[in-house]
Amino acid sequence: MSKQKTTKFRIYATIDREEVFLNEMCAQGWKPVRIILGAWFVFEKCEPGEYIARVTTCVDPKGRKAGKERRRQLSEILTESGAEIIPETNVDAGTRIYAVRKEAMGDFEINTDIDSLIFEYTGRRRYHITFAVMAAVFIILSVMLGSLMIYDFLVNTGDKRTIVSACLEFSATAILLVCFLMLLMPVPSYSKKIRELRSRREFEE
């Protein structure tokens, strides 16, 4: 008999919030089994609190996607330590690893020392900055294109279709602007975490 399943649609600005959501679902008795396009989360019924979920980035501190070999190594260590890797398809596929492990196996932390936490948060911050810069470039291009359309409407054609196209262009710009802000929003909190960890390291390690 197949297990009861449910799918939730969620878009989160940060990995931290995504992890909180996955753990809330685990606490309610839903184990994540698949993530589609980074927004559709498929869950399978389990015992409440049976699993702990963790998400880690697979990028280096420059925000670049880690190679397949490195991803394989980290996934392998996780699997050997009793975790299950959740299959995912994402627009930035390969930059994250989602894992669950049974709560009965004890604490489940992927980064247990200050250096690897700094590495993790630096990667996350750079990842957000890189995508925010990309969004900013598209915003500039989109504004330029929309402005050209309005100019064309006013000076040359007077064609109403041009102004409709310009409106659509500016709507796209507005969506891009929201994405840009969502991407940029967590950057200060990551910077704060990195500063705190660095100052902790001076005393603890």
């Binding site: 880690t56 490195r70 190594q73 980290l74 260590i77 996780l78 330590s81 975790a83 004890g106 604490d107 932390e109 992927i110 980064n111 247990t112 020392d113 250096d115 690897s116 590495f119 993790e120």
Partner: peptide, 13 residues
């Protein structure tokens, strides 16, 4: 001392 997978992976590299 319980090493996390991320800690070990980073340290090994």
């Amino acid at each position: 001392v319980r090493l996390g997978a991320g800690t070990l992976y980073g340290a090994l590299n």
